[in-house]
Design a protein around this nucleic acid. Sequence first.
DNA 1: ATGACACCGATTGTTCAACAATGATAGTCG
DNA 2: CGACTATCATTGTTGAACAATCGGTGTCAT
Lengths: 213, 213
Amino acid sequence: MPDAEDTLTNALRRRIIDGEFAPGTRLSEISLAEKLGVSRNTLREAFRVLAEQGLIEHIPHRGVSVASPGVADVVDIYRARRYVEPAALAAGSPLHPAVAAMREAVELGETSLEARDWRTVGTANMAFHDAIVALADSPRLERLFRDIAAELRLAFLEIDNPEALHAPFVTRNRALLETFLDQGGPAAAAELQDYLVLSERTVLGAFTRLRHG
Amino acid sequence: MPDAEDTLTNALRRRIIDGEFAPGTRLSEISLAEKLGVSRNTLREAFRVLAEQGLIEHIPHRGVSVASPGVADVVDIYRARRYVEPAALAAGSPLHPAVAAMREAVELGETSLEARDWRTVGTANMAFHDAIVALADSPRLERLFRDIAAELRLAFLEIDNPEALHAPFVTRNRALLETFLDQGGPAAAAELQDYLVLSERTVLGAFTRLRHG
DNA sequence: ATGACACCGATTGTTCAACAATGATAGTCG
DNA sequence: CGACTATCATTGTTGAACAATCGGTGTCAT
């Protein structure tokens, strides 16, 4: 079955992001290869890709495990986000196609919030920010964001309180979109700065609460 | 010979960056594996890592070749740089350890300029900007910069006029460092914006000159 | 001569089995 | 009870093999 590997990498990626393998889980080459119906070598190639993306951690001679981001990782992820997202929003055009994606993400978030479908709320949230980055029209920045967004999802999985994590930001997304359209990029960028600070604080708070009981 | 792969990846990476394999060169699995004294499978794992880093391009069933960045890539690389570098400089502290690295890079650039050692001038140049990014204390931003800097080196290799490419920026690096120390981060950030615009223009100019004769 | 078509060869994609090397574990001894 | 050692499961790496695909070559009909 040639070409299994691209598919394999994506499949593994999705399953990890979806939480099928909890953060920190050890991924055994032999058993996982058997489970997925591929050879060890093919699986190892996929591992290398995912490790480079930060989704799994590879320790020589000790195998790979699903990344489990710690406080330092969350801090760094938000730092990177603050570098990229507000600037993308500040320079973004309201006519950019990504604006439609922003709107759709906001609406999906709102309907999912009503349905109390927190998982989808989280997905919509990420899609919203992904659209913001897309405003920059930079494949490399998009790739960076794709990777750190995936890592952040792992952090969310560790916390496992999706309502507190995602719900508060649905209305903020709506407000941010309207600020962007009504008052322009720079105003929206300033708002997003505060937004990200608050979001980081929310995540970090949940994290330390985890550690202390 | 276990643990060959991390070493292998780094070795290949360095050889590519050093121009041993010209941009666009097809890398045959069989012959390269033989040349490097590793098996095809091990080499393929290294390929996956380097492809993820953007150093080589992988086309299914057609193998990998050394990336040869085009105009669009250069534009995107500089876009990403403008997002990250000035902000890092603006927020950076003069007391940060990376400042020492900035200084060393400037001095190395100056001595290499005198010696007309353009290769080292280019290296020092990149080290200077690497130190700027290090001001942000963000592993993920550093990784992004490491990858795009490597890609940019490939673009430089394609142009192959290192003097025009690197020499003009030695004095600018010195000036930028002094602005940062004397007038602070924001002033230096503004200067760096212009710097990067000029640098991009230099590279793009050389590129189009290549295409037209 | 030219264009479509079928074939062939080289290369990549993937698997399997084997062995070396390492890290963790468990058991032993002082 | 702690340090040492032997064992063992797992990873690291290899080589050979076969399947699948791509690109070029040559043929053939028009």
